[in-house]
Design a protein around this nucleic acid. Structure first.
Lengths: 240, 240
DNA sequence: GCAAAAGTGTTGTAATTACACCCATGG
DNA sequence: CCATGGGTGTAATTACAACACTTTTGC
């Protein structure tokens, strides 16, 4: 449990963990126990952790993978964003485990104060992730970006801002490939780009555009068993 | 003076205030009294202020202008960025005014802890700004981006990141015009773009590019007294 | 052989870059 | 009338979008 003093007060980190499957962007969202509310996976910053380390710890707790592509994108700090009411409910629900740990209400007063939240997004290969529940979670699952369940605080805004940021950066930093598996077909890349940018591309022009970037290497063909020509597989070039 | 409790602890805001003059980007930097060190204008976040409000307050204190273009660009939170040593020196230098205010050392212990800093940049018309000193400052002046004096903490990094961010956003959001006066010539715009992007443009092509954006209105000519054709003045279009 | 999906080449158009010329101004 | 800097038009180049055709695969 969180103990005052070990952490920086009134500051949290919220992570928008994104994956890609079935032509759709998915976000990993834990559902709070005994409440019909979902949150972004979040946490606090230890006095001994840098921001990056804190964010990676939060991610490792929920996805059990390392080498995650992670980027800070915005700080959220309006006065209205906090919700002491929800925090109170949470405390109520978990009062047993709180008592077991020998803690009293005063130890949690700080959780009801205003919080500033640093937004990070993580781009992961959805097939590599095994979602993990924390003590506070009832479930932890992937949700389609366009069909989000009810989110606590301003977390829906945070998701929106994360996606806007990614959309803006997509052509600039080649971050998209973090959402794909180790090897992939050109169609998968195209589907990804079409989903994120929300517009169609022509197959041949898209292929030219991507290959001209000179960042992919072509591997053997992939036989899917479908009644059509087998597409090539590609892999991100190792930089030497 | 800063009193514990009124502010969010261990979080600060640092502002990179940028102006443009003489084909060069300038940053407004206060010099600390009795030390050969400069800092970014910074401050803390009141419990009753949103981040934006806090940043605007900090800016108003140094520039005495309102309607400032302001943008959050990054959070700095490594463990090494703080410097209790410098904070200690500062306290030493100002012990008289601290005593006058009836405060004791314990009131300032929190300033020596680790700090996370939220970076904002402000783009201003350098001619409208009258730099103001705070109690802690000896001077507060504009410095060329390429000739920065010694900066405290990681403030030199913060300046670098701010400029990288602006360079990236320049074509995307038309933020550049915030650095120019109310009315300006096309050459001034070109100088600005060339300085920020660090590359030359052809005069006529640049003019076409900018005018095609359909954001400027042409005013009367500007007679400078120079031995050449008088250039047109332009103004940012009022959006209706 | 056919449908489906992938690979590749070729054309046309739009955007960008480069070059050229003319005009106003003060000394 | 000349040097300087500003305005504008047009040609050349390049990048991008659109179209067409060929190949591979399983049934």
């Amino acid at each position: 449990m969180f103990q005052k003093g070990d952490y920086i007060e009134q500051v949290s980190i919220d992570c928008v963990i994104l994956g890609f499957h079935n032509k759709q962007l998915k976000v990993l969202l834990p559902k709070l126990k005994a409440l019909n509310i979902w949150t972004l996976p979040g946490g606090f910053i230890r006095q001994t952790d840098s921001l990056e380390e804190a964010a990676l710890r939060i991610l490792a707790d929920r996805t059990a993978i390392r080498d995650i592509y992670l980027e800070q994108f915005m700080v959220f700090g309006s006065l209205e964003r906090s919700s002491p009411k929800l925090m109170k409910s949470l405390e109520e629900i978990h009062k047993e485990s709180i008592a077991e740990a020998g803690l009293v209400e005063a130890d949690f007063a700080w959780l009801q104060r205003r919080f500033i939240s640093i937004g990070y997004y993580a781009l992961v290969d959805i097939h590599k992730v095994v979602p993990l529940c924390s003590e506070l979670d009832e479930t932890c699952e992937w949700y389609d970006i366009n069909e989000l369940p009810p989110l606590a605080f301003d977390h829906a805004d945070i998701v929106t801002k994360a996606i806007e940021h990614i959309r803006l950066m997509l052509n600039h930093k080649l971050i998209g490939f973090n959402l794909l598996p180790e090897t992939f077909t050109m169609k998968e890349v195209q589907d990804l780009y079409e989903t994120i940018l929300d517009r169609p591309f022509r197959r041949n022009n898209f292929q030219k555009m991507i290959l001209d970037l000179d960042i992919l290497e072509r591997l053997e063909k992939k036989f899917t068993g479908a009644a059509n020509k087998a597409p090539f597989l590609y892999r991100f070039k190792k930089m030497s």
